[in-house]
Design a protein around this nucleic acid. Structure first.
Length: 701
DNA sequence: GTTCTAGAAC
DNA sequence: GTTCTAGAAC
């Protein structure tokens, strides 16, 4: 196995800023690490720096510099709660050291009670005063961000997190380096990082060994997955670890430059891993001497990409499980534009191994493929590839061609070529992501034979959910569902993106409007218009996108721009119609940042909010706060930056403010009473940016 | 997403 | 006592 050798042979010192109020356990943290670490550490504690008495920040800095000169790594043991307090320590990174932060975000009560007890001895802060001090400090707290200059930040919210962090640093030998980035922060995707934490716990560092040790971690992870016959790693419940095995696109027959290709593979893997939860990406090649594999492996290692979730593998992509012991549920095919078998290489091998079923299933989805595009094909359960290898989906992907003897030769134009190859990997990984998300809401099939023949459903595996006839039938549908599917579903609702049964009604209508004639107001190839079943205002429509795998605003990309424009103009048309009937109506068109129901839908909603269905804070704030993203703004953002900004769900819990005068109200009934009579002007930004759709005279009242 | 309801807030 | 919210269950 060729292991990437770090270019710096020198031991990399680190400065670790502990961040937390008194009583959060900063000193204990340092002591625990220093007790078992093989790396020389110096703890710089402002409380005792002056011969056991408290000193100044400047003294701490000086001592830090001295310690670094002696070759020690440094803990800065002071509160470091706000950005300004931290800034001078971060500047130490100029001395060729990495600056890390470990954030001890323990409950304030815990810190207070600890610091009350402790300061009891020292006579420093007594009882209630300690509480007041801690509370005051916490008020001015600013959580650290990478852009302050940290190369790594770890957040700890409880004792287990702290233990994890202690282990991570204890295990760190003099030559080791930790992955950069932000780890463990709540409200962001932390799942991927847990893997790393667990993993570092296991690594035995050998002090003073060769420089290779920097990638000891990487190597072990690879060994684990490459050489032993591993069954898919289980994460908590019964769900499988989704794994996509893919060949390098365009670098074989299409003769794409290997250096450029490997850059793009690593770049795209890095981009998608955080979105993929625990799922894994595996670059596969047949030969041991594969240049593309070693290039990718080296680059991934240099970027500190989690090697348990993105790695390379030598083997036949059609026999990964049976011959390589690697369980993958999805494989990518370097397809030809006709999506036909043959040609040689991976394409021929996959079609051959999958049998005629794959061709039929492919044909049901697409006849041809453009460079840069991918198509996800569920593999029929009858296919030997599913039975023998556990493959449930094949994703055909077509890359750019640099070979003059093949069609659509790009004549060495690598500007176009790189763009197209990036697009190809984006399409491929997005296809995989859609599979991961679709299946995260269902338990693994216990009996593959019971799966409906997927060559027939253009849908996906959630086809069984199409028992829904629409929102009206939800109660019935969920009765039918209960038992077999329901009980193993995530109960902790924390799953990255699992759609519960009730959330699929819109998707169902968008896919089969003909089955919902009673609710569909208008439909075309691209959109369906329905009344919101629980209107939150006098007029409240939804314009549904019909395209697959556009679940919500977060999935929207530049290629969906035309669709968004159509949705917008359909919305406008209905506004026009409603205003012809009642010229006092004022509308906004927009999307929820994070929708509760699957399938991208545009809300067309009048701004009176006169509705008995508007019952709670979430309802109100989802239409009147920044959580509601105006269609106009979304279009602009997608046009200029390729995707739309989304607001965090946290704002839904914010206070209740009038949508016109922005006055705050204590509860929903009082708010509604106020809103009924408020005649103030709408907020400036809505008026100014033409986000309100009203007949001219109606906004001047 | 909605419904239901315990218990917090008044 | 009544009103209202927030969380669980669906």
């Amino acid at each position: 196995m060729d292991v990437q050798i770090e270019d710096s042979e020198k031991a990399k010192q680190i400065v670790v800023l502990l961040i937390g109020p008194p009583g959060s356990g900063k000193s204990t943290f340092c002591d625990s690490v220093m007790r078992s670490s093989h790396r020389p550490w110096s703890r710089i504690c402002q409380d005792i720096i002056n011969n056991g008495k408290a000193g100044s920040k400047a003294q701490c800095l000086k001592m830090a510099i001295d310690s670094l000169k002696e070759g020690k790594s440094v803990f800065i043991d002071r509160c470091n709660l706000d950005r300004e307090q931290r800034s001078e320590f971060i500047k130490l990174s100029g001395l060729e050291v990495e600056v890390h932060a470990v954030v001890l975000e323990l409950p304030a009560q815990v810190c207070i009670s600890r610091s009350v007890k402790r300061t009891g001895h020292e006579g420093n802060l007594q009882g209630g005063r300690a509480a007041a001090v801690v509370n005051k400090m916490l008020q001015s707290k600013e959580l650290p961000k990478l852009n302050e200059g940290f190369s790594r930040i770890m957040f700890c919210y409880n004792d287990a997190d702290v233990e994890n962090a202690v282990n991570t640093y204890s295990m760190l030998g003099p030559m080791d380096k930790l992955p950069s980035g932000c780890f463990g922060q709540k409200n962001s995707d932390t799942k991927s990082q847990l893997g790393i934490m667990k993993f570092f716990k296991k690594v035995n560092t050998l002090p003073g060994s060769s420089s290779n040790e920097t990638t000891e971690a990487t190597r072990k992870a690879n060994e684990k997955t490459e050489n032993s016959r591993v069954s898919p790693t289980k994460h908590g419940s019964a769900d499988i670890v989704h794994t996509l095995a893919f060949p390098s696109i365009s670098t074989a027959d299409f003769q794409f430059d290997l250096e450029k290709a490997s850059d793009i593979i690593v770049e795209k893997a890095e981009e998608f891993l955080p979105k993929l939860g625990t799922a894994r990406l595996v670059l596969v090649d047949l030969s041991h001497g594969s240049k593309i594999l070693s290039a990718v492996k080296a680059k991934a290692s240099r970027k500190n990409i989690d090697s348990a979730r993105f790695f390379t593998f030598v083997g036949d992509i059609t026999k990964l499980h049976s011959e390589g012991g690697l369980q993958c549920n999805v494989i990518a095919n370097a397809a030809n534009w006709r999506l036909k078998p043959g040609g040689g290489g991976v394409n021929a091998a996959i079609f051959k191994a999958a049998g005629p079923d794959l061709e039929a299933a492919t044909r049901a989805r697409a006849n041809t493929l453009l460079p840069g595009k991918a198509v996800v094909v569920p593999l029929p359960s009858t296919s030997p590839l599913q039975n023998a290898e556990g493959i449930t989906h094949v994703i055909h992907v077509l890359g750019p061609n640099m070979n003059p003897n093949r069609p659509n030769y790009l004549n060495n134009d690598y500007t176009k070529g790189c763009k197209s190859l990036r697009e190809a990997y984006t399409s491929l990984f997005e296809g995989f992501l859609s599979i991961v998300q679709d299946q995260s809401k269902f338990p693994k099939r216990s009996n593959p034979a019971a799966v409906p023949d997927s060559s027939e459903n253009i849908e996906d595996d959630s086809e069984r959910n199409k028992k829904f006839k629409g929102p009206q039938d939800m109660a019935v549908a969920s009765n039918l569902e209960s038992g077999s599917v329901e009980d193993t579903r995530d109960s902790g609702k924390k799953m990255s993106k699992g759609w519960s049964s009730w959330a699929l009604a819109l998707h169902s209508i968008a896919m089969h409007p003909e089955k919902h004639e009673n609710v569909v107001l208008e439909s075309s190839d691209d959109i369906v218009v329905i009344n919101d079943q629980y209107p939150k205002a006098r007029k409240h429509l939804l314009v549904l996108a019909r395209q697959q795998s556009l679940d919500g605003l977060e999935d929207v990309r530049r290629e969906n721009l035309q669709l968004l424009q159509e949705m917008h103009s359909v919305g406008l048309k209905w506004v026009e119609k409603f205003q012809n009937e009642d010229s006092s109506l004022i509308f906004r068109l927009g999307y929820h940042s994070v929708p509760s129901m699957r399938q991208l839908h545009l809300h067309v909603i009048s701004q009176d909010f006169e509705s008995d269905n508007l019952k709670n804070k979430k309802h109100w704030n989802s239409f009147t706060s920044s959580f509601f993203r105006d269609s106009v703004d979304v279009l602009e953002e997608v046009k200029s930056q390729g995707k739309a900004n989304v607001e965090s769900e946290d704002v839904l819990k914010g206070e209740l403010r009038c949508n016109r005068c922005r006055s705050a109200h204590p509860n929903i009934p009082k708010l509604k009473t106020h809103v009924r009579s408020c005649r103030s002007q709408f907020p400036e930004h809505l008026l100014h940016n033409n986000l309100l759709l009203a007949r001219p005279e109606r906004l001047d009242e």
